[in-house]
Write a protein that binds this DNA or RNA. Structure first.
Length: 646
RNA sequence: GCCGAUGUAGCUCAGUUGGUCAGAGCAGCUGAUUUGUAAUCUGCAGGUCGGGGGUUCGAAUCCCUUCAUCGGCUCCA
């Protein structure tokens, strides 16, 4: 007998060699139908694997990530089975489960292309196979047998993958006629896969290498119930409505013009107001926290970037230098602000007493992004960073880091960005050559970041290999409407630029010392930030950010004079207000202005005109009763104040 | 940049196999209406069907090319 311990701490004796599935069946047949994978002694594995010793056991249902993972991974194999029957000779790359579903990279061979039009056919074939309830069978084989097997199938991609595996750890799974190299785990059979939707095709380089062959990636998602698929489809529809590109157009916030150039956003008046509101709020916050605001040009001499090292690394893959007509001096469009800021630092001597020096700029930068990569406001070629550089002593580094984390968390809280992740990016331990800076500096920087985050109780994910070439960093990512992750805030330690620009300060010992530099942004770029903000709020900005705070709606032409008077008073009180004096019925005016997401609608008619009031209606909430104009002004001001206090 | 798809009025979309197929709703402009909390009624105007080239008696529809957009890949100082 063996002892199985469950997550709740209880344990139970079972016969040796029992499988997780059999245990689930003994607990309840209903449970057995709902579990898809198990974690035995911390290792995720198939339900069918026999357990031969005392163990801890967790059964994974749909609700667990591990359960979904097995479900979708098995679905990828089901799709592969369908593809193999529809496209004989098709070759397979990798087919993993992802956050929402799964994909498989395939090479259909001999000039065949698979397009979206083919997806319903593949889907249908998958349903046929799923309905057969065939089991997923695991087998462990030797490396040689594995290579022979896939060489026999002519599947060179699989053979390549096997070549990199250790002998003795290779498992293969089969479902129907399809055999795949796979670590697992998988469902016991296709039985639970009830709803299938293939969601798209895309090109994907084999192993993510643009020098290698481009395979066809087919995306799909499956569910154990049709109802869940329907809900997912509704979610996608809702997300589409929140797309910042759509709302940006609808609310006239920004636009793009091919004449101006792709990836170059044009901020329309209302979008510009939102930007300005963000900038002025953040500026006041920065000043309170000891930042100095600077302004630098949009271009810089190419030698500046040669000095910084950026030219060497990015010179050929960025916008190419422009030159002056006579002297032929070369200038680059500013791809970042830091070199300029270093020169401001260098313009005056510095004492250890004045550090840390915090230099901030809303600096517009220009970067070449490949055409296929441009995406609304989230990926553009011209954007404004809320950039800052902290020049500090080594002993101040960690404290500065903590200050910045505090500031970022503060802003995120004000904006209700609760769903973010923080990622610490460290060097790739296997490829230290590609980074600038000494071993010693890197080690200190990495340690400082990790410890600062820990001291601030910030939950982070540590990812080796993702660091910038000049230093480790801490990034804040948030998701857009359909769950794509975007980086916003970032804090990056830099030991490199201070060296290159020979930045110094006089220490208490009257010797020259080298400061440390921290690059940081909170919004990342105003463009990306506004995009995420739009998707988070569906265009219903918090009052303090809304470009227009109120609109006056006279019941009829008779009250236009009073309406104009109210408009005048509010605008003079710095409450940006509009008037809708079209000869429409009040219901129509309310509807139109609700759809424009104007926070306050002020209905006025005979009653209001007589006593000098407005009838207040909050966007999305309805009637709030009547107020004196002055009352409304303080009402709206206190709401803004409340929004900015936490 | 690469793979695939899309591109019809300011917006959202109809336009069957190439032959009155250039349409609708909303927005806009007219005129009427003077309205009490999410759509009042008339009328009008709007498009070389993304651009260019070709096939054809005839192209929004088929082919080529180009531009832009969308979904990914790659990249992201």
């Amino acid at each position: 007998m063996i002892k199985i311990t469950f997550p709740d701490g209880t344990s139970q004796e079972y016969k040796n060699g029992i499988s997780s599935l059999e245990i689930a069946e003994q607990i309840s047949p209903r449970l057995a139908k709902a579990v898809y994978a198990a974690t035995v002694n911390g290792e995720v594995c198939d339900l069918s694997r026999p357990i031969n010793s005392d163990a801890t056991l967790k059964l994974h249902k749909w609700e667990d990530d591990e359960g979904k993972h097995a479900f979708w991974h098995s679905s990828a194999h089901l799709m592969a089975e369908a593809l193999e029957s529809l496209y004989p000779g098709i070759k397979f790359g990798i087919g993993p489960a992802i956050e929402n579903g799964f994909y498989y990279d395939v090479d259909p061979g001999n000039g065949t292309t698979i397009t979206e039009a083919d997806l319903p056919v593949i889907e249908k074939k998958m349903k046929e196979f799923a309905a057969m309830n065939l089991p997923y069978k695991r087998r462990e084989i030797s490396k040689k047998d594995a290579i022979d097997l896939f060489t026999g199938k002519g599947d060179e991609y699989k053979t390549e993958l096997i070549g990199e595996l250790e002998d003795g750890t290779i498992s293969i799974y089969s479902n129907g006629d399809f055999v795949d190299l796979c670590r697992g785990p998988h469902l016991p059979s296709t039985e639970p896969i009830k709803a299938i939707r293939l969601t798209g095709v895309a090109g994907a380089y084999w192993r993510g290498d643009e020098k290698r062959k481009m395979l066809t990636r087919i995306y799909g998602i499956t569910f154990p119930e049709q109802k869940l698929l329907n809900e997912y489809l509704v979610f996608l529809e809702e997300a589409k409505k929140r797309d910042h590109r759509r709302i940006g157009k609808e609310l006239e916030l920004f636009t793009f013009s091919p004449r101006v150039g792709m990836g170059l956003p044009l901020w329309m008046p209302k979008g510009s107001d939102v930007r300005q509101n963000l900038i002025s709020y953040l500026t006041s916050l920065l000043k309170k926290r000891g930042y100095k605001i600077v302004t630098t040009p949009h271009i810089g001499n190419v030698n500046l970037y040669k000095l910084s090292g950026h030219f060497e690394k990015y010179g050929t893959s960025s916008f190419q230098p422009i030159s002056t007509p006579e002297e032929g001096e070369q200038f680059m469009l500013k791809p970042m602000n830091c070199p300029h800021h270093c020169e401001i630092y260098n313009a005056t001597p510095h004492s250890y007493k004045e550090l840390p020096l915090r230099m901030a700029e809303f600096g517009t930068v220009y970067r070449y992004e490949q055409s296929g990569e441009l995406h609304g406001l989230t990926r553009v070629r011209s954007f404004t960073q809320d950039d800052a550089h902290h020049f500090c002593r080594h002993d101040q580094l960690r404290e500065e880091f903590k200050n910045i984390i505090d500031l970022i968390l503060y802003i995120f809280k004000i904006l209700n960005f609760n769903d973010f992740t923080a990622q610490i990016s460290l060097r790739d331990p296997d490829d230290k050559e590609k980074y600038i800076g000494s071993e010693e500096n890197w080690q200190k920087a990495e340690r400082d970041i990790i410890e600062a985050a820990a001291e601030m109780n910030l939950k982070t994910v540590v990812v080796p290999g993702e660091a910038a070439f000049y230093g480790p960093k801490l990034d804040f990512m948030v998701k857009d409407a359909i769950g794509r992750k975007w980086q916003l805030g970032t804090i990056q330690v830099d030991y490199n630029l201070p060296e290159r620009f020979d930045l110094t300060y006089n220490g208490s010992d009257n010797q020259k010392h080298r400061p440390v530099m921290i690059h940081r942004t909170i919004f990342g770029s105003l463009e990306r930030f506004v995009a995420v903000l739009i998707e988070n709020t569906a265009g219903k900005f918090p009052l303090w950010l809304a470009p227009e705070k109120a609109v006056v709606l006279p019941i009829s032409d008779k009250f236009n004079d009073y309406a104009a008077n109210v408009l005048h008073i509010l605008n003079n009180s710095d409450i940006c207000t509009l008037i809708d004096d079209r000869s429409e019925k009040i219901g129509k005016k309310i509807r139109d202005n609700e759809l424009k997401r104007i926070p306050y609608l002020l209905v006025i008619g005979e009653k209001e005109a007589e006593v000098g009031t407005v009838s207040v209606r909050r966007q999305g909430e309805g009637d709030k009763g009547t107020m004196k104009i002055e009352e409304f002004i303080s009402f709206i001001r206190s709401e803004i104040k409340k929004e900015l206090e936490i």
